[in-house]
């Protein structure tokens, strides 16, 4: 649905994007991560036809961002990182204004606006002035606006920034709902745990370069977390368990972490079963065996160097 090839964007001497390549399939939720100034917003603005790339190509739904801007605007719903609102409009008027701006016939507008208000849980606010809404409500209104013309692709630049935990959870639920509706979503966020929960794919960008792109599983594999297991045994069997595990040739390292033992395998496919077999045969009482979990924050820190332009 989104295809980016060698995309480069320069602002004078500054290279905001350098040969960016990216593919996002239909119905996927793609999480875009990177430090401030890494090039996330620039990429999103190019896809939303607000910026022209210096070189390279970008396609949305098979349409070229440089040549078919109007066609792309029809299929894209773009929500900027800071959404400006018109202070002299009411919520219903605001949404109807954008419905009209997307050439939706006047007869259909009312029902469509009512529909997105219901989806974003804003029915009670339809007569409220847009500028009187709280930040969370305005973000919801922003989501309602991008949905008004039923776009195939949603480009959401930090939709959860500045929101309280409840509002963030509600936005997350809404995104899941949209995924079920078959929307392709490109989302950037600084709250990495959120992306971890809802995204199918992740792209990590730094200094305009994509340092990683793939599924969540691929990111764990790259980090090496797939080959680690956490083993918890009864305290009196811990030393015996370490001794037994150290005899296995496939195990690279065994380390005692106090509450549990971390076992690092050279081959992640056999990790859990090998550990279980050896410990059971050695009469060690096992409490639990579970694959090591790494947080996206840790992956982000490992993959990026914290450099900005």
């Amino acid at each position: 649905m989104i295809e980016i090839t060698n995309l480069t964007k320069c602002y004078g001497q500054l290279q905001a994007l350098v040969d960016l390549n990216l593919n996002i399939g239909q119905g996927d939720i793609f999480g875009f991560i990177g430090p401030n100034g890494a090039g996330k917003t620039t990429t999103m603005r190019i896809l939303a036809t607000l910026l022209k790339p210096t070189s390279g190509k970008a396609f949305v739904d098979g349409k070229n961002v440089l040549k078919q801007g109007k066609d792309i605007r029809r299929v894209v719903g773009y929500m900027p990182d800071f959404m400006g609102v018109y202070d002299d409009l009411k919520v219903f008027e605001y949404l109807e204004f954008f419905a009209a701006a997307f050439d939706i016939p006047s007869k259909q507008r009312k029902s469509i606006v009512e529909g997105v208000l219901e989806l974003t849980d804003l029915q009670g606010k339809k007569s409220a002035a847009v500028d009187s809404l709280s930040r969370g409500m305005q973000q919801r209104l922003g989501l309602a606006r991008v949905l008004i013309h039923d776009p195939k692709v949603l480009i959401l630049d930090e939709p959860a920034s500045g929101l309280d935990p409840r509002a963030r959870i509600e936005i997350r639920e809404l995104l899941r709902e949209l995924k079920k509706m078959g929307k392709t979503i490109m989302i950037s966020s600084h709250i990495l745990s959120e992306l971890e929960e809802i995204c199918d794919f992740i792209g990590i960008i730094e200094q305009g370069r994509l340092v990683f792109s793939g599924t969540m599983d691929e990111i764990w594999r790259k980090m090496g977390t797939h080959s680690k297991v956490h083993v918890t045994v009864v305290p009196e069997h811990r030393e015996k368990a370490i001794e037994l595990l150290n005899t296995v040739p496939e195990i690279v390292e065994v380390s005692d972490q106090g509450s549990h033992i971390v076992v690092d395998f050279s081959d992640g496919q056999v990790a859990g079963s090998v550990v279980a077999k050896i410990l059971v045969n050695g009469n060690v009482d096992i409490v639990s065996i579970e694959p090591a979990k790494m947080k996206l924050d840790d992956a982000f820190l490992q993959l990026t160097k914290g450099m900005v332009h």
Binding site: A48, R73, V85, F102, D103
Partner: peptide
């Protein structure tokens, strides 16, 4: 005023 209120980007992504 559209730039200051940051509503211009949103307006430019419509079909207007």
């Amino acid at each position: 005023s559209e730039k200051v209120s940051r509503s211009l980007p949103v307006l430019l992504t419509t079909l207007i």
